[in-house]
Amino acid sequence: MIDFKRVHLIYHKDKVHALKDVSLSFSKGEISFLVGPTGCGKSSLLKMVYMDIMPSRGSVRVLGKDTYDYSERQIAHLRRKVGVVFQDFRLLPTKTVYENVAYPLHVIGASDYEIERRVPQVVKLVGLEDKLDSLPGSLAKGQEQRVSIARAIVNDPLILLADEPTGNLDPDTSMEIIKLLLEIQTTRGTTILVASHDMETVKRSRKRIVRIENGIVVSDQQPGFAHCADSLEDVRGE
């Protein structure tokens, strides 16, 4: 579904070599966590999937097609199938919670009936049903984050990219969100990539964990081996 092959990413403006020789494959219906210290390149990796940035070298294939082969229009259409929870939320500041979540539905030309049915449903799922008419500016960070999650899943994406979706939530709410993501994965068969700092929550989920440091993939552990991350860390600590 998503394939990175020997991908390098260089931000020319600051001459930052953000990703180095990354080869990763994410199959359909799989959920994977990307972990690593700040600045290691997690967000950059996700941005290449929704084609906000393009690889400097190597190839990124999404839904079987090289990202360089997508036209402007095809990118727009792909993005409608890729839900993104942005690290900085990226809510539309002049629109209410309801309108923000409804926006991707308007983009795909959904009917009013569909929108009125779907939006409250999704907003309830993230527990913000009493904030439907609030503007993002009046929400707490954690609430904004949940609106961003609602918007990302509102039109049943094939791929869900979540950049620090629990970054501003307390441990309990974080676990709720992770559970929600796992539920989406199992019920919808959505391919999910989650970038996270939150090792605790990630480990408890017992899913694939890709560890990145300094733009290099240093470990890639399949589900059920979460404890290995600890031992690896122990080894590194020595």
């Binding site: 929704y50 906000d52 402007e72 229009r73 727009a76 259409h77 792909l78 993005r79 409608r80 890729v82 993104v84 942005f86 990226r90 809510l91 539309l92 500041p93 002049t94 926006y103 991707p104 983009v107 795909i108 918007r151």
Partner: peptide
């Protein structure tokens, strides 16, 4: 004043004409 918004709209799949 709405540049950031326009970018976001593009990122959630809106075409230029939309």
């Amino acid at each position: 004043s709405r540049q950031a918004e326009i970018r976001t709209m593009k990122l959630v799949g809106a075409t230029s004409w939309f």
